[in-house]
């Protein structure tokens, strides 16, 4: 039977999604139940719903970070790493499938929690429609017209999840290189990598013309804001790619059973 790289990736991705299913169902189920409860209980204080909706959205957004640790450590705990490592594929595909599944978890969770949360807020606060469609004072644009910037921010958030997941994979790979205190090493490497990559980010932004950016923000120059969002997105993507590649190199060259 013929095999293809895409078919292999698809099998690995489906497997990872199945591994993530219990957490995803739990969070989405909790979000839906909480929203139903809030819908019936906050009629008298419709604005009170905003806080819990953001909390639930935050929970859905944070879940992939926790899952990134579970997804990889479970392979060792259940000995399924023997199966993974004996497959005729490299670490890039194995970890790529895990990363794609984590990003799917993020998108699915935030979209379900976000869209249903928005609908809940809108149902309880119909005046929200006016806020979205009326002109913002001093800017001369409607909030709804800023959807491309909103989309860019959402894409950046996906890249940030990829960046955190890559740090998680990298730190776990380094942790697996030692036979003792593996968990401690993982934690230390995670914090150190996050700190160091943050410093790289600081260095990068130091070289960006601050005046150009500050003026652009103060005058709400959409061109400057768009450029900032794109630079930020690409920089985060590059950082995530570097850390992910390091994790893959360790998996391919150093991990042993």
């Amino acid at each position: 039977m013929p095999t293809s790289r895409l078919g292999m990736f698809s099998k690995l991705y489906s497997k990872e999604m199945r591994e993530l299913a219990p957490e995803m169902i739990t969070v989405i189920g909790l979000a839906v139940l909480a929203y139903i409860y809030l819908f019936f209980k906050t009629h008298d204080y419709p604005f009170a719903v905003i806080g819990p909706v953001f909390m639930i959205g935050g929970m859905a957004a944070f879940l992939p970070v926790i899952s990134s640790f579970k997804l990889l450590s479970r392979e060792w705990k259940n000995n399924t790493v023997y199966l993974m490592m004996s497959l005729p594929v490299k670490g890039g595909m194995i970890m790529g499938a895990k990363l794609t599944a984590l990003l799917s978890e993020y998108v699915l969770g935030t979209l379900i929690a976000g869209v249903s949360g928005f609908l809940l807020i809108y149902a309880l606060n119909p005046e929200l429609g006016q806020v979205l469609t009326s002109s913002i004072p001093g800017i001369g644009m409607k909030l709804i017209e800023l959807w491309p910037q909103g989309l860019a921010l959402y894409l950046t958030s996906i890249v940030i999840i990829a960046y955190i997941a890559s740090i998680s994979f990298f730190s776990q790979m380094v942790g697996k290189l030692v036979s003792r205190f593996s968990g401690l090493v993982t934690a230390v490497v995670f914090i150190a990598t996050a700190y160091l990559s943050g410093k790289v980010g600081d260095l990068f932004w130091l070289n960006i013309d601050k005046q150009w950016f500050t003026n652009g923000i103060n005058t709400f120059d959409l061109n400057v804001i768009n450029q900032f969002l794109i630079i930020n997105l690409l920089f985060s993507l590059a950082l995530a790619a570097v850390i992910f590649t390091l994790a893959v190199i360790i998996y391919n060259r150093k991990i042993e059973l």
Partner: peptide, 29 residues
């Protein structure tokens, strides 16, 4: 070219035999 059977149980516990077979099929011609 290698079919390896380790001593330990190394298949995903949630898989059925059919799912495990389908999984392997995707990798080995």
């Amino acid at each position: 070219s290698i079919a390896y059977l380790p001593e330990i149980d190394y298949f995903y516990p949630w898989m059925t035999i059919k799912q495990a077979a389908g999984f392997l099929q995707a990798f080995y011609a």
